[in-house]
């Protein structure tokens, strides 16, 4: 933990320098491959989502010691028991809220900032809340360094959402709990969608989609890793 805190502190200190040195084309080939192999191949086909994932430099949102695995097919730890989600989960969640210009999203759990960056790269307006202050600063610094300062971030309890900016066309709860906070459901626009990953935080196994229709809610359990028995009785 001490090492991670130190790395975080160093990263925060040198982040202004890094902003000037990052090249958008850096590791572009890895991103193209990631989108082709891990995301499009698994059925994500929303053009805006795929384009955003090709653009956003994921390696700037992971701790330096994990940078080598930034485009690998899995989540990575970012400290404080949190992870940057597997690229496919980020893509699936983004596609589910139907991103694009003139749409407004709330993210609960900024974490590394990567999910917010992908959303904003589709042209959407993004608000993001992070509970843990150190992570909020970390995510904010990553977003600035990667060239997405327009994401509005703040540190606080995601339970209450961001009422001043409500209603939202979509809400992504990346740090889910045993119950969906009623204020978030209130802040979802009619016809809006909320996405929550369910399962181990270190290995998301399913996504929960909540749709608001005329003040009522319908949920759908989506299985990114579709599980069927290998040998079914014929």
């Amino acid at each position: 933990m001490f090492m991670k805190r130190t790395a975080l502190a160093v990263l925060l200190l040198i982040s202004p320098l890094l902003v000037q040195t990052v090249q958008p084309s850096e590791r572009a080939a890895e991103r193209l491959e990631m989108v082709r192999e891990q995301i499009a191949a698994r059925g994500v086909n929303d053009p805006a989502t795929l384009q955003a994932l090709r653009e956003v430099p994921r390696h700037l949102f992971v701790p330096p010691d994990q940078s080598y695995a930034a485009y690998a097919d899995g989540p990575l730890p970012i400290g404080y028991g949190q992870t940057i989600s597997q690229p496919y989960i980020v893509a699936a969640m983004t596609e589910l809220v139907r991103p694009g210009p003139n749409r407004k999203f709330l993210e609960v759990g900024t974490g590394s900032g990567y999910q917010a960056a992908v959303l904003v790269a589709t042209g959407a307006e993004v608000y993001s809340i992070e509970l843990i202050p150190q992570l909020a600063r970390y995510g904010q610094a990553n977003l600035a360094r990667a060239g997405y300062p327009q994401v509005r971030t703040r540190s606080g309890d995601g339970y209450y959402g961001w009422p001043e900016a409500a209603p939202f066309d979509g809400i992504l709860v990346t740090a889910a709990a045993e119950a969906v906070p009623p204020p978030l459901l209130e802040q979802l626009a009619d016809g809006g969608r909320m996405v929550i990953p369910v399962g181990s935080r270190f290995f998301t196994q399913t996504l929960l989609l909540v749709e608001k229709r005329g003040g009522k809610f319908v949920t759908t359990n989506l299985m990114p890793v579709r599980f069927v028995p290998f040998r079914r009785a014929e």
Partner: peptide
């Protein structure tokens, strides 16, 4: 302050 009660509470709550 962030610890709250409820077990898979209905969205109608």
């Amino acid at each position: 302050s962030q610890l709250r009660g409820g077990t898979a509470v209905s969205l109608n709550w």
